[in-house]
Nucleic acid binder design. Structure first.
Lengths: 108, 108
DNA sequence: CTGACACTTGCATATTATGCCAAATATGCA
DNA sequence: TGCATATTTGGCATAATATGCAAGTGTCAG
């Protein structure tokens, strides 16, 4: 692992990290259905305005969403929709785990 | 967002979180080429044995890798290879960002 | 049984993340 | 201009992560 490779993996990990939070992942998936303004997220989720705003800033910083200010509102849009394509694989992991846990429970 | 949905997103995020670390992501990709024992990773990376071991434990806990103890050694194997399929999309995000940053620099 | 090897776990510490409150900014309306 | 709405920023308390070191566990060779 040379320095350049380290940087690459650090960059890739930071993109994943941006998605690796329930709130941000949910918001990203919501954006797959079209742009949304911050206020819409605030309505849908029981969090402070500032909390939502900071989460969106993380997604933006990671290059996952892009921003469009229109009037008083700020709209966020999914910039790289392909990121959500692999969610079915993530779900496969969870289901596989669920099975194992279920199987383990059988033995108790 | 009801409770069940919250749980689902928490679970999905935790799988992503396991991959969202340069060291773990690199190890996961290495495992795509076949199983490896902990000692091989220790040789390849400049980290303490215990650090590597803990990272692998995180991947295991997330359901991404599986373990096979053989003799004195412990081998780790990729359990869900599809997770790495979307890495090209992650790289696309990075490249897109790189372009924007390059474009921004033009204006200075 | 003893010692060596390959890990894993517990502990301490440093860094980073999360979420709220309050303050700052930006925009449009009266 | 002054005020309300929409959003971002700064600050702070708390929680979670990352890492190394030291100590513990399990396995094999002699």
């Amino acid at each position: 692992m040379n320095e350049q490779e380290k940087m690459l993996y650090k960059a890739k990990a930071s993109v994943l990290k941006a998605l690796a939070h329930p709130t941000r992942l949910w918001m990203a998936e919501q954006l797959a259905g079209g742009e949304k303004c911050v206020c819409e997220f605030v309505e849908m989720m029981d969090f402070d305005f500032s909390t939502i705003s900071k989460h969106l800033a993380v997604l933006k910083q990671a290059g996952i969403v892009e921003v469009d200010k229109r009037g008083k509102q700020v709209f966020y849009r999914l910039k790289v929709p392909c990121l959500l394509n692999f969610m079915n694989c993530v779900e496969a992991v969870i289901k596989a785990q669920g099975k194992e846990q279920a199987a383990l429970l059988q033995h108790l």
